[in-house]
């Protein structure tokens, strides 16, 4: 019977069917995430068009080095993630553990930089709702910019935290040598999630940090 195949769940006939279902399931879930972030992106687009001056002023207030650094950090984390997948494909336990740890480390660095940015904004009274004050002509509309900044980066950071949690789950399984070249779907699938969160940031970086920098 099918139970004798290691890791095959009872509802599936073959491992290939199971892997295909898991793979497609994650892609379908990522489509929902596109729509989730997309709703906020839509608002951002509308208000940037309506209040370009405020958005430019707000954007310039953000620290570009932090944004660029974070972008590079996430790109590196996607690289280490895909190397972890490669290690799972080739059955290298040490590689899996090492690259998963590296990815988690880089993810944590990202969150640390983000925490620094938020603290700075808080100190400068640029957090909407918590004593917001933006000097210059854009008091109200700059608050809209920062609202989207915090909503978008906050949601993104939440997804990063979940991602680090998922990586921890993978790390435990990798430590226990549970991944084989034939059966390592979880690494692939969680990798997809991690790359997606990276892609969201790839768009957030120019939209939030690079509005009208040259002025």
């Amino acid at each position: 019977m099918t139970e004798s195949i290691a890791g095959l769940e009872h509802q599936f006939e073959t491992l290939e069917q199971q892997h295909e279902a898991g793979w497609l399931g994650m892609w379908a879930f990522l489509a929902t995430e596109i729509m989730f972030f997309g709703g906020m992106f839509t608002g951002y687009v509308i208000y940037r068009w309506a209040y370009f001056g405020a958005f430019a002023a707000g954007s310039k207030d953000l620290e570009i080095w932090a944004g660029t650094l974070n972008t590079l950090v996430l790109i590196c984390s996607s690289f280490t993630m895909v190397l972890a997948v490669h290690a799972a494909e080739t059955g290298e336990r040490r590689g899996q553990i090492g690259f998963l740890l590296a990815t988690m480390f880089l993810g944590t660095v990202f969150l640390g930089v983000k925490g620094y940015e938020w603290t700075t904004l808080f100190r400068d009274h640029h957090v909407p709702g918590i004593g917001f004050h933006f000097s210059g002509p854009y008091q109200n509309t700059a608050q809209i910019f920062f609202s989207f900044y915090f909503a978008l980066t906050g949601m993104h950071a939440l997804h990063m935290v979940v991602g680090v949690g998922l990586l921890t789950f993978l790390l435990v399984k990798a430590w226990r040598a549970e991944f084989t070249p034939a059966h390592h779907a979880a690494v692939d699938i969680i990798g997809l999630y991690w790359h997606f969160v990276d892609i969201v940031w790839i768009f957030l970086f120019p939209l939030l940090y690079l509005v009208d920098r040259h002025r």
């Binding site: 892609w27 990522l30 489509a31 709703g39 509308i46």
Partner: peptide, 21 residues
Amino acid sequence: LTYVFTAAGLLWLALLMAFTW
């Protein structure tokens, strides 16, 4: 089928943005 799912997600976002815009 992966391509269909990806395209659908992007297309639907484009729809939301386009009509609202």
